[in-house]
Amino acid sequence: MRLAITGASGLVGRFIAEEALAAGDEVLSLSRNAPLPGFFSAPVVHHPWELNGEPPALEGCDALVHLAFRHEPGRYRGGEGRDPEGFRSANLDGTQRLFEAARRGGVHRVLFLSSRAVYGDYPPGTRLAENMPPRPDTLYGEVKWQAEQALAALTAPGFATASLRATGIYGPAGPGQRHKWTDLFEDFRAARPIAPRVATELHGTDLATAIRLLLTCPANRLGGRAFNTSDIMLDRRELLNEVAQLTGCASPLPSPGDARRVSEMECARLHNLGWQPGGMALLRESLPVMLAL
């Protein structure tokens, strides 16, 4: 398969690109800057592209995975900063141009990385099922939901589409990158105060496995649908206790967070395709690498 991936050199995109390379795919990386030598485990083809520019040429690609998203550094919700119109123009208009270019270019399958943020203002503790209507309450969630709808509207015979509503993605970072918990781990080891928090998490390799399933399953299983993509409910206290056991760090643990205020996602559609994420076992396997032990 010749697979085009936007944002392949990002923290999340690298997991998708590495899985594709391991599967023997030819990877076309679409991003502003070419990846540094050695960033990926095998060569990839790079084509310069950015969301607010002209859509790329996608002729000859079998599938497209759209991960790229323009936002303020380190922020998704609220990632528009002081430029909501520019945020919407790049992330919605640019995404729509990309999807249309994929259809014109003869791409057969397109997957879009959406977000749990599309569910928005459901009460804390709600079990979020895929058939529940989205209720985004942030510009980020609204743009993701509108992009989902734009892609679904293009679905046609020979052009299969789906969106993945993903939770927070964790895992080891690529060369020269910092993973999502780098600052948290540094604060803990320096005994700085840490606020309690509980969140849903998903390892990047499990996201990549979900994407592989959607790239290879029968096209009629996609149908423009959205697939919830989540795994563990994780308290920072539990996470940092694992760090303490691995490092011998004696810093005080944060207070337990309130799991009752976290809405978990039901991932029935992916589970029905045979998807099984790695759970706490995969987290524990990854922590020594993330701690550089």
Rank of each mutant, 00 (worst) to 15 (best):
residue 242 E to I: 05
residue 153 A to Y: 06
residue 226 A to H: 10
residue 201 E to D: 07
residue 230 S to E: 15
residue 222 L to G: 01
residue 155 T to P: 08
residue 160 A to M: 10
residue 241 N to L: 11
residue 213 L to Q: 05
residue 250 A to V: 13
residue 207 L to G: 07
residue 240 L to E: 00
residue 242 E to L: 14
residue 178 R to Q: 15
residue 221 R to G: 06
residue 224 G to M: 10
residue 228 N to V: 02
residue 245 Q to C: 12
residue 218 P to K: 05
residue 212 R to G: 07
residue 167 T to F: 14
residue 168 G to E: 10
residue 175 P to L: 09
residue 178 R to G: 12
residue 144 K to Y: 07
residue 197 R to Q: 06
residue 191 A to I: 06
residue 244 A to C: 11
residue 212 R to Q: 08
residue 132 M to T: 07
residue 185 F to R: 01
residue 250 A to R: 15
residue 157 P to I: 10
residue 155 T to Y: 10
residue 191 A to M: 07
residue 137 D to F: 09
residue 147 A to K: 07
residue 246 L to M: 04
residue 225 R to H: 14
residue 223 G to R: 11
residue 202 L to F: 07
residue 199 A to Q: 14
residue 253 L to A: 04
residue 226 A to G: 15
residue 197 R to T: 01
residue 133 P to V: 13
residue 156 A to I: 07
residue 213 L to V: 04
residue 243 V to S: 00
residue 235 D to G: 00
residue 235 D to T: 00
residue 246 L to R: 01
residue 176 G to K: 05
residue 160 A to D: 14
residue 134 P to I: 12
residue 241 N to C: 08
residue 205 T to N: 14
residue 219 A to N: 05
residue 252 P to V: 01
residue 217 C to I: 06
residue 163 S to M: 11
residue 147 A to Q: 08
residue 175 P to C: 09
residue 183 D to W: 09
residue 137 D to L: 07
residue 180 K to G: 09
residue 205 T to P: 04
residue 146 Q to F: 03
residue 242 E to Q: 15
residue 169 I to M: 10
residue 235 D to R: 00
residue 243 V to R: 00
residue 211 I to D: 12
residue 248 G to C: 05
